[in-house]
């Protein structure tokens, strides 16, 4: 996939994956900007051969663990202090259109 063609519809799909309700203007603008950016960055596809391992972590450390010992967290009041809404010591959120 070396093409950096990306349509306005693609941008709309990406925005929905990213849960951002972009306006028509924003879709138009990103629809124009993203192809230009991708045109510049797609060079990465030409640089490295198959023998080059991808780097996910800049410093090679492994096995960083924590002992299974409880430590104090937040009180419910602290946890809920920043919540847009709460009820019965729980975070109140709008209706979830989900499973079932």
């Amino acid at each position: 996939m070396s093409s950096s063609a990306i349509s306005r519809d693609d941008v709309a799909h990406l925005a929905s994956l990213a849960r951002i309700d972009l306006s028509d203007d924003e879709l138009d603008r990103l629809g124009a900007e993203l192809p230009a950016i991708l045109e510049h960055v797609k060079v990465v596809q030409q640089v490295a051969g198959d023998d080059v391992p991808p780097m996910s972590h800049p410093i090679p450390v492994a096995n960083v663990f924590r002992a299974d010992v409880p430590r104090p967290g937040l009180t419910p009041d602290e946890a809920l202090a920043g919540a847009p809404a709460s009820e019965e010591q729980r975070f109140l959120v709008p209706q979830i259109l989900g499973e079932e």
Binding site: A18, V47, A48
Partner: peptide
Amino acid sequence: KRRIVLGTYALSSGYYDAYYGSAQKVR
């Protein structure tokens, strides 16, 4: 928003190897 949408694209299936994967190799 620009970066979120760009990153969503670079990680999406079918593009991951070409973009995110290749970029990690350049690293």
